[in-house]
Structure formats: C-alpha cells, structure tokens
C-alpha cells in the first residue's frame, strides 16, 4: 500500500519536473526569472549582496533578496530555493557548506582574496588589566576580571548570535575554562558591548572577526587558543585534549568563498560568470560594513554608494563576461 503510494508520488513529482524543465531557457541569455540572493544578519554580507544584486540589475537581470538563516542557507542553495551565497566563512560556515557540498546541488564558486578569522577577541585596553594575553591560559587566569552581574563568580564571554553556531560554550567546557558563555542577540549587541566597555576601559572578551569595520574603530587582538587542526570539530582525538571536541581555536587563516546553486550556470550563464569573477578584499569588505555600522546608511544606499565609488573594482568583472 505504502509502496504504491510512494510510486504514485514519485510519478507525480517526475511529471512536474518534466513540465518545469521543458520551460528552461536557451543557454545564451540569462533567464528573466529573478536571481534570488540570500541576506543574513551581519552588515558586510548585506551590503555585498545588495551590491552584487545591483550589478546584476545593471546587467538587466531581475533580482530578489530573501532573508535567510546563515547556516540553513546552504540547504536552500542546494535545493535551488536561493541561487548563490557571497560570504562562506570557513570558521563559521565551513561545516554546513561541506555537508551541503557532499549532498550535492551546490558548488564552490571561487574564493575572495580575503583571509578570515573569527574567534574570542578583546580590545587593547583589556590587555593592560591582564598582561598575559593573548594566550588563552592567561585569559582563564584573569577570568574574574570579566565577571558581571549575570555571570556570578565566573568571567563572561559574549559569543555571537546563536544561529552563527560558534561553539564558544563547547570550547569553554572542553578546555575547562572559568567562563560563562552568553550569546549576543545580534552583531550590534557585540558592538554595543565593546562601546559600553570603552567608556570606563572595562576589560571585555567578545566574539569578533575579520574582515570587519570593528578593527578600525577599536584596535584589539584575537585570543590564541590551541592551534586549529582539521577535524577538531568532529574527532575528539584531534587537538590537545584527547576526549573532547572543540578543544582548538578556529582556523587563523580561513577562506572566504562564494557558493552557487548547480543550476545557476545554465539558467543565468552571464550572471554566473560574473559570480565566479567577483573578488573582494579584506579592506573592501570592512569598508562595506562600516558604511552601515558606523555611517548608519541603509544597506541599499550603502551598496549604491560603494558601487559608485568603486567602479574600477567591479566594472572589469562585468566586462569580462559580456563578450
């Protein structure tokens, strides 16, 4: 009975698939269907997505933006619900990206010329109170400097929003650190925390990353944890503590990739070509974030302004693909 039902379903699905594929456009021109670009909850990605969207629009494509979760997006790209992803950070999304890659449906569309790192971070004034930094053991010994009303005797580490899946808590547990890990509600909460601490030079340790505008505003350093080993997040034997996961720091020189849905190449060949050419650097990305985070522009305006100011950067990508 069930098998029969399954076959019927499969047959229906196949029929639908045939109908859909019959309407696929010719290879030469981009489809007039909108290219769907995902937007997440940190500024550089939002501005970059808007900038690329506006580039596509200038090429005559239709573009739509959807806000999606930054981890779930790889599943969506894989299924073709959204069509590309412009910021694949190794430390944060490497795992989700690799998993989706294995299941098939999306592929690596090249790297940005940027080095990424994301980890526990402190502004420079913290070092005065805890001179042993950036070593994590020194940080642990200063834990009492970081305590707050909420954290009791332990120090507090403000981790990124939950959906970024930073594993700060797991790390603190694996390394037996005297810290309570609290998730910020958003990136802005992180900046607010640093800003508030700056007033009376209170020591703080928060999640941070590069490239990011914050490094220009508040000089600081990443905490040095035991060095990243491939598989540290999957295999307990990797890293200094034999029976724990997450007992290493994040990769110090992570990649920043673009990802594309497999079907994009055929449906929007020109847009896809541009995607493979797209290549932003650390300072460019930090600049985009700054337009929104400190200059308080709306992301759409920020993208327009950035494109206007940096035509020499992006025009060649479009030209390379128009021939």
């Amino acid at each position: 009975m069930i098998r029969k039902f399954t076959t019927t379903l499969a047959a229906t699905a196949a029929a639908v698939a045939i109908c859909l594929s019959a309407s696929a456009p010719s290879l030469a021109d981009d489809s007039s269907d909108p290219i769907i670009i995902p937007i997440h909850n940190w500024s550089s990605q939002i501005v970059m997505s808007n900038a690329v969207g506006q580039i596509y629009q200038s090429m005559g494509n239709n573009v739509e933006y959807v806000t999606t979760d930054s981890q779930a997006v790889y599943e969506s790209v894989r299924l073709g619900d959204v069509h590309l992803e412009l910021e694949v950070w190794e430390g944060a999304f490497g795992k989700s990206f690799r998993e989706a890659l294995e299941k098939g449906g999306l592929h690596d569309a090249g790297d940005h010329d940027a080095v990424t790192r994301e980890d526990w971070w402190y502004p420079m004034w913290t070092k005065e109170a805890c001179p042993g930094l950036p070593d994590w053991k020194a940080l642990n010994e200063c834990a009492h400097l970081f305590k707050t009303a909420e954290s009791g005797d332990k120090g507090r580490y403000l981790d990124g929003p939950v959906d970024w899946l930073k594993h700060g808590k797991e790390r603190a547990e694996a390394l037996g650190m005297n810290f309570v890990v609290v998730n910020a509600g958003s990136a802005a909460a992180l900046w607010a925390e640093i800003g508030a601490a700056e007033k009376d030079k209170r020591p703080v340790v928060v999640f941070n990353w590069t490239p990011n505008f914050a490094e220009a505003v508040w000089p600081g350093e990443f905490v040095e944890f035991p060095e990243w080993e491939e598989g540290c997040d999957k295999d307990p034997t990797k890293g200094p503590i034999p029976d724990k996961l997450y007992d290493c720091g994040n990769p110090a020189k992570g990649y920043l990739k673009k990802a594309a849905w497999d079907g994009m190449k055929d449906k929007w060949p020109k847009a896809y070509c541009v995607l493979t050419k797209i290549n932003f650097t650390n300072p460019q990305i930090a600049e985009m974030a700054k337009l929104v985070d400190t200059d308080e522009q709306e992301p759409e305006e920020a993208a327009t302004n950035w494109l206007k100011a940096n035509e020499s950067v992006w025009k060649p990508w479009v030209e390379a693909c128009s021939g």
Binding site: Q71, A72, E75, D163, L165, G185
Partner: peptide
C-alpha cells in the same frame, strides 16, 4: 525572547532553525 538571548529551550530551538 530567545531572540534577545536566553539559554533555554527557545535558544536551542532558534538554533535548529539554522539547520535541518
């Protein structure tokens, strides 16, 4: 309120939204 930052069921649930 998980969105504000909690450590309860809601936070864990919001995390599941990030995956499958």
């Amino acid at each position: 309120a998980a969105f504000i930052g909690t450590r309860d069921l809601g936070q864990e649930m919001q995390r599941t939204l990030a995956g499958t």
